[in-house]
């Protein structure tokens, strides 16, 4: 049996990504990351994209120029498929996180990966950060891609990051899901149980804005937030690389561009 275990160990090889010191893992060619919008093309358009967007992530100003709210975006690519001028596309840029909610509203042109940094968090928890993960209406996808960071591909323990089983042992709360009414109390209680100073990371469109559930009377995230949010990691769900990148930038563990 010991021999079989050793044989399996040999078969599995070394799998941990070299990122961030080395290159990140190869993403699918069809991966939809940071949007890039050619706004000059929008002026002579009736804006079919805004009406089509299932989570109403696309906003148009008076001149017709389009901005995309990544906090609501599902990265479903339907706007890009429908755009008659090919003015919207989703690039392969996986760095999407931002500390301020308004920095998620973008045409993609001025996107800056440094927007995720929180100097106070970096100073306090840059070398060790324990998170209490709370799923509140999450569908299981964000949970899976948050959980996968503990596996040996990503191994967040390398960075002093870990998920704590109790809020009393945590420095922050990682929130998933649109926070249904039935979880509002539990989310607040968990947040209150974490000793200060503490930070909240919202992972996924639901936790940031309510996503598809933003207008449901049952859900709180977005319109009636229960707790303040310090870092937004967009996506539906965000790729594990996007989540890890966001956490590391938030803590000042990646600074060079």
């Amino acid at each position: 049996m010991l021999f079989e275990i050793l044989k399996a160990r040999f078969q599995q090889g070394h799998q941990t990504t070299a990122y961030p010191a080395g290159p990140p893992p190869q993403l699918s060619e069809r991966f939809a990351g940071m949007p890039a919008i050619e706004r000059s093309a929008c002026h002579s358009c009736d804006g079919i994209c805004a009406g089509l967007c299932p989570s109403r992530a696309i906003q148009r100003d008076a001149a017709g120029a389009v901005a995309l709210d990544m906090g609501r975006c599902l990265f479903c690519n339907e706007c890009a498929e429908a755009c008659p001028k090919d003015a919207i596309r989703f690039t392969s840029q996986y760095q999407l996180a931002a500390a301020k909610r308004e920095d998620l509203i973008t045409d993609g042109v001025n996107a800056d990966a440094r927007l995720a940094l929180n100097e106070r968090a970096a100073r306090l928890y840059g070398r060790s950060f324990a998170l209490r993960v709370v799923s509140a209406g999450g569908c299981g996808a964000c949970e899976a891609d948050v959980n996968v960071l503990t596996t040996l591909t990503w191994d967040i323990g390398r960075f002093g990051l870990h998920y704590a089983a109790s809020p009393r042992h945590a420095d922050g709360l990682l929130l998933i899901g649109p926070v249904p009414e039935n979880m509002a109390f539990a989310v607040k209680e968990t947040y209150d149980a974490i000793p200060a100073p503490k930070f909240v990371i919202a992972v996924g469109a639901c936790a940031i804005s309510g996503g598809m559930y933003a207008d449901h009377p049952e859900c709180h995230a977005g319109r009636r937030p229960i707790i303040p949010i310090d870092l937004h990691i967009p996506g539906c769900p965000p790729h594990p690389l996007t989540i890890l990148d966001g956490l590391l930038r938030f803590l000042g563990r990646i600074s060079e561009e």
Binding site: G137, G138, P178, P180, E181, H216, E218, C219
Partner: peptide, 9 residues
């Protein structure tokens, strides 16, 4: 606890 109102929506 996870009730999001899917059927209603």
């Amino acid at each position: 606890y996870q009730h999001r109102g899917v059927m209603q929506a």
